[in-house]
Write a protein that binds this DNA or RNA. Structure first.
Length: 273
DNA sequence: CGAACCTCCTGCGGGC
DNA sequence: TGCCCGCAGGAGGTTC
């Protein structure tokens, strides 16, 4: 489900909902594993500690407490939500963080592709889930030069290159489609054959799409919800994702869906070459 | 080695 | 109406 804009909004919601002085009173596990077994003991060691902040790295959420970091990934259907007072748990509510003032933060994840892990402060860059991550697309280090260096030596379709989290993070199946449309590049083009001038368009295209999506609260296709259970709004701005068979809003050509590495890939045959 | 494929899991929408 | 199939926003492991 969630790509950078959805994770970023989740982080902002968590930051706002936790406020200045929230404390983790208790963590309750309603099952033992998500994608992997959760490190119960290590996470329980965070009980009693204050939340110091919320950060995002790639599609990971870092809940920073006094003596360690709770790392979460939403997978396809993960969701954090705040509850006040007694909680009516659903079957897919797997973890509950009991906070001060009778508030609870609930992690729900029907497909259980999500992750909840523990990271020590010294391991922020060396933890196994964080150490292989590539550039943040909204950071200035994500440049045409940097992307070209990878593109030149890759035969993979440009779409796959952009979704490779070891190269650039946060871009998933929705936003790669939208960014390639904006840059006028076919998703199947071999990376090494994408011209320098096109890469130079791609960088701002990715940034602009992600920024706009963040501003709109992300895309709600099915499961994604903000921490207050409201929906995102960027799905209304999708130019190609999920629009196979419909007309391109720019040139009226019928949008196509091609399978690349087993994933749906939406594009306009006229606007993208 | 890189790239494609497979897998984990549940729910839902479309087609019959 | 009801059942079955295919597909879904991720990503790590396996295979070729």
């Amino acid at each position: 489900m969630p790509e950078l804009p959805e994770v970023e909004n989740t982080c902002r919601d968590l930051h706002a909902g936790l406020g200045e002085n929230s404390r983790l009173e208790k963590i309750e596990f309603r099952r033992a594993d998500l994608r992997d077994p959760m490190p119960k003991k290590k996470l329980k060691s965070l009980e009693g500690q204050k939340f110091l902040g919320v950060a995002r790295r790639a599609k990971y959420i870092l809940l920073k407490l006094e003596n360690g970091i709770m790392l979460s990934h939403l997978g396809m259907t993960g969701q954090w939500r705040f509850e006040k007072g007694p909680v009516q748990f659903g079957i897919h509510d797997h973890v509950a963080l009991r906070l001060s003032e009778g508030k609870t933060l609930v992690f729900r994840d029907p497909r259980r592709f999500g992750v909840l892990d523990f990271v020590q402060y010294e391991q922020e860059n060396s933890h196994k889930r964080l150490k292989h991550l590539g550039l943040e697309p909204l950071d200035p280090e994500f440049t045409a030069e940097a992307l070209t260096a990878h593109a030149k030596k890759s035969t993979a379709p440009i779409k796959s290159l952009l979704m490779n989290q070891e190269i650039v993070v946060g871009v998933g199946n929705i936003y790669v489609a939208e960014a390639l449309f904006r840059a006028g590049i076919q998703p199947r083009r071999p990376s090494r054959r994408v011209k320098q001038s096109e890469i130079e368009k791609l960088i701002p295209a990715i940034r602009e799409i992600l920024q706009k999506a963040i501003e709109q609260g992300g895309s709600t296709i099915r499961d994604y919800r903000r921490a207050d259970a409201s929906e995102g709004g960027f799905q209304d701005f999708h130019q190609v994702y999920g629009r196979a068979g419909e007309e391109c809003r720019v040139c009226n050509t019928v949008i196509r869906n091609t399978v690349i590495s087993g994933r749906s890939s939406f594009w306009c045959p006229k606007c993208q070459s």
